[in-house]
Write a protein that binds this DNA or RNA. Structure first.
Lengths: 169, 169
DNA sequence: TTATGATATGTTATATCATAACATCGTCAA
DNA sequence: TTGACGATGTTATGATATAACATATCATAA
């Protein structure tokens, strides 16, 4: 079963998750988005995006670099970091601050504030978009006179599949 | 005026903030806490804590190292990182993930979940402890079957004193 | 009091993450 | 076709963090 475009109720992957379709979908959407914006999703950037999307775990820049070198032997750190910067600017990936790592964005079409649920066992980083939470933070900060520009919200723990008494879903 | 022990309504510093008393208070409380717990707040650890508390900005490990070397010429990275680890374990400081830096904890007496408001201009990292927010995150994650172990919540923006139309308080 | 184990610190080396600075290449519009 | 701009190549280095092992210090039980 293909992961639906409008994210399902649970942001976690299921046993039946078809990652081939998932990544293909992500790349297609990225191409469309960049085309619509006049941004150049070059082959290099597309490959880096594909590598970040290899799984739903956050992946480090140097892991991307190592993988990239298979198709692109001369790649150096700036090669990867520049591509990652581009992808972040266009909302195609997110940076996970607590891991110094990067993960594909599940809803790149519009800018949004996300919260990440990061499993300490399988490493999956599930993206939420809970406006009640981001709104509560905005209001609380605003009440203290603080003008919020960016939110970093990352929860570590165990995802449903990795919990001792995992209820399969 | 001394910053009161029970944090005032605003977690931001005021123009009249007496940092000398503030840091002295923090060191005293750390000593009491460690004594009560049978933890050894050695001179080295005390000095590192003092250096982290030099201001309300988050401070990098290597900045601490450089300052520490004035009194402790042989200090090396592990010297500082081990002291920081100890201080974090005992809740005396927090790590700011999005800055790879460390800041003194304003309420070390009990474990808590904090939110940080980090000013991009003056660098101050104000610590909130809003149980409505941490609770909302816990509930939301729980509803998705995710067992939260740790929360990282860091907002970047401008503090009241640094906003264009700062209202002094 | 001294031996002993545990904890803390010293020391050297290296892993990991990220960017500066400048050269070259490709693309596209004038 | 050339000039400007954006993308990529290349080399070097900066910034953050830990591994591994040696030595010192402390608390305490023999």
């Amino acid at each position: 079963m293909v992961r639906s475009r409008a994210e399902a109720a649970s942001p976690f992957q299921t046993a039946s998750h078809d990652h081939g379709s998932c990544i293909e979908d992500a790349l297609d959407r990225a191409a469309q988005l960049c085309a619509a914006r006049g941004a150049r999703l070059t082959e290099l950037r597309r490959q880096v995006l594909q590598l970040v999307w290899r799984g739903h775990e956050a992946v480090g820049a140097y892991a991307v670099l190592e993988a990239l070198r298979r198709s692109h032997p001369g790649a150096a750190p700036p090669t990867v970091y520049r591509a990652l910067d581009f992808l972040i600017e266009h909302g195609l990936i997110h940076r996970i601050e607590s891991l110094n790592a990067y993960v594909g964005c599940s809803r790149p079409e519009r800018r949004h504030v996300s919260q990440f649920l990061i499993c300490g066992k399988c490493g999956d980083a599930a993206e939420l978009e809970d406006s009640a939470i981001s709104g509560a933070l905005l209001r609380r900060a605003g009440a203290l006179g603080f003008a919020v520009e960016q939110q970093t919200i990352e929860l570590r723990g165990l995802c449903p599949r990795c919990r001792p008494n995992a209820r399969a879903k």
